Amino acid sequence: MPFTGEVANAFLTRNNYTWTEAKNNCTMIGQENFVNISNSIDRQFWIDARVTYSPWIEYLGCSRVTDEIVGTHQYVTSGQQIEECLHICTDYDFLGLQQGRCACLKGPPPNSGDSDPKCDSKGCEKDDNGLCVDTNDIGMYAVYSKPVFSRNDIRAGNCLSVVRNDLGGKGVNSYEAISCDQHLPLVCQKGKNSNNLHILEDNVYKWSESFLHCPSGTLARYSVVSNQTTELQTNTYYWLANIRRPSFHFYSDPEPEPKYCVSAKISRVVD
């Protein structure tokens, strides 16, 4: 795949390959926005990129944060609020997010787990699947805890769901990362720091909308659900309050079998 100027000249193969096979047999395109191709297509193709994920964090609700528990704060970039805040607060177990500012917290706010009725979390700017608070809401933050757990068997995806599988007649809960814009029913906690769970199955929502429909103001957290016997419908996915963020690495030389490989859809642009 020769590259000249801002437009790449792409040559498409007729055969299918694994990512590693493609990497070993040609120079793949990377993060080019436009490519020249010889025919009209609308298909997925491997590109020279891989993905790593941040640790899982749990959304605790929208809370007022007092100066006493703020360890440090810095400004963050629109669209990268969560990823940058995780990096800034490496040495802290809790973090708070406004649209443009990250606060590293020494501990959870007193009312974490029950969202403050005066606090309004909404989709982060350029990241609708994260939750932030407008910067003009002085002292109010969308609060997260981290790290929650580390598992290598959960496939690619940014938001965490729980599903009950019927294995040999015994219901077993498993956890899967999926796209945050899917519409799922909810598992909610009944109150502040409560281990009692409330299942909402009548309506389905995207992850970022879900906390608005839980009576306590937040979804149930993995750290609670994993220790409970929850009566879920078999083979139905439910949202939990856990999210993570991907980092894309272009033109890299990853290990022979990277865990997550990246494809891109190449479509013809009609003038």
Rank of each mutant, 00 (worst) to 15 (best):
N33H: 10
Q228S: 15
R164Q: 15
D120Q: 14
S226V: 15
R221N: 14
N158C: 08
S174M: 14
Q99N: 13
R268Q: 10
V148M: 09
T229N: 15
I57R: 03
T135E: 14
W19D: 04
N173P: 15
R268V: 07
G130F: 06
Y238C: 00
E83G: 02
N129R: 11
Y144G: 00
L184H: 11
Q233T: 13
S216N: 09
Q80G: 01
A8V: 09
C26Y: 06
K118A: 09
D42I: 01
M28L: 14
L167K: 15
T13E: 14
I178N: 12
E21S: 09
G168K: 12
K259Y: 05
I266R: 05
V187I: 15
E21C: 07
E32D: 10
V35E: 01
L86W: 01
Y175A: 04
K118S: 10
C62Y: 01
S247K: 12
N235W: 12
A220D: 05
Y205V: 03
I82E: 02
K106R: 13
Q74R: 10
D91N: 13
E21P: 00
S226H: 13
R50G: 09
E201W: 05
W46G: 01
R245Y: 12
E176S: 12
M1F: 05
V65F: 07
T135V: 08
R245H: 12
I138D: 09
C62G: 03
A49S: 14
Q233Y: 10
C62W: 00
D166P: 01
K23S: 07
S263Q: 14
T236W: 05
G217H: 01
I154A: 07
E125Q: 12
T72E: 09
A8R: 11
A156K: 00
I178Q: 13
T13Y: 11
R155L: 09
K106G: 11
Q44W: 14
R164P: 07
I41N: 04
L60K: 07
M140D: 10
W207K: 04
K190L: 04
S226G: 02
Y237F: 15
A49G: 11
D271G: 08
S223T: 08
L197C: 02
F248R: 05
M28A: 06
N158P: 00
P215N: 07
P55V: 04
E255A: 10
M28S: 06
T236P: 06
K190Q: 11
A264K: 01
I69H: 03
N9V: 09
